[in-house]
Design a binder for these strands. Structure first.
Lengths: 153, 153
DNA sequence: TAAACTTTGTTGATCTGTCAAACATTTTAG
DNA sequence: CTAAAATGTTTGACAGATCAACAAAGTTTA
């Protein structure tokens, strides 16, 4: 009845564990200090990199790994808070852009240092530089192997 | 405006990505084939290892990284489906046990081979044995470093 | 041109979890 | 022994995501 876990199963289980732990810790401090979820934060960050023209909502959804409705609801919230605004597209009336507002940028600047610090403290306590690098590589392969799953061209 | 991500930030971001990807894939096939979420599955698995006397609900919550109310709701669903039952504790009337039923065990046996296979296929496609081992170790350190956070005894 | 398909985005119903509070039962201290 | 603290569980309100269905705009094709 007590079977030995396979390496893959063991790796997955630790991935789930590490994710739950890190996410709980980082998210709770981000919410407590700034009222932002990790997705909120990620969204503001992506928009800050996108500059003035903002990003199409669907691209945002892909980058944040959210469904189309997920992005609609996330942005609804951020719009209500005044952190992002909406832009239209002249060439294609279907698409709308999400654009970081001034308050949104301010919020990001307020939250970022502490959050980044949390991340580095938390991960830095567990892994040295080389391990961190290795971990990032291995995790990268895990998601990459997904994209290449387009068997027939 | 375009700052370079620190190694820790990069590692976290890949962890989130890999988690989202794997979780989406594995979960959707588990739900489609057997009507179980990954937590449902994990719960049945833990209970199957616990044997006849089952597990205290709170221990289950810790192992699955769920809040106490989360476990209540998860078990409510599994009880409604007849997959787990409830047991009382003679020594301590506060605690109740969750116990795998026969149908629960049958469900687990039905779902396990395919799920394990999914996991091994998916992870095996991305990493070789040595990488898998390394990844498991590094992820292990990430959660372990959590437990040892009890500064003053 | 018009019919059919694809892409982008929203909405309603629903699912699964959280938190805060309530409650019952032990355990511990005075 | 009794009052206070700790432990285990459940409940109500709600957050954040999903899916299915839809609407609207663009693209293809015949």
């Amino acid at each position: 009845m007590k079977e030995k876990a396979s390496p893959a199963t063991e790796a997955l289980s630790r991935l789930l564990g590490a994710h739950a732990t890190l996410t709980r810790e980082l998210s709770s401090s981000l919410v407590a200090k700034h009222g932002l979820t990790m997705n909120d934060y990620g969204c503001l960050l992506l928009l800050s990199r996108a500059g003035e023209q903002g990003m199409r909502r669907i691209d945002l959804a892909n980058d944040l790994q959210l469904s189309p409705s997920g992005i609609t609801r996330l942005l609804d919230r951020l719009e209500d808070q005044g952190l992002v605004g909406k832009g239209e597209c002249k060439e294609d009336a279907r698409v709308s852009y999400a654009i970081l507002t001034e308050p949104g940028l301010a919020k990001l600047r307020e939250a970022a240092p502490g959050h980044v610090d949390d991340i580095e403290t938390r991960l830095g306590a567990a892994l040295d530089d080389e391990e961190m690098q290795t971990l990032a590589e291995l995790l990268g392969k895990l998601s990459d192997s997904d994209e290449k799953c387009t068997p027939d061209e």
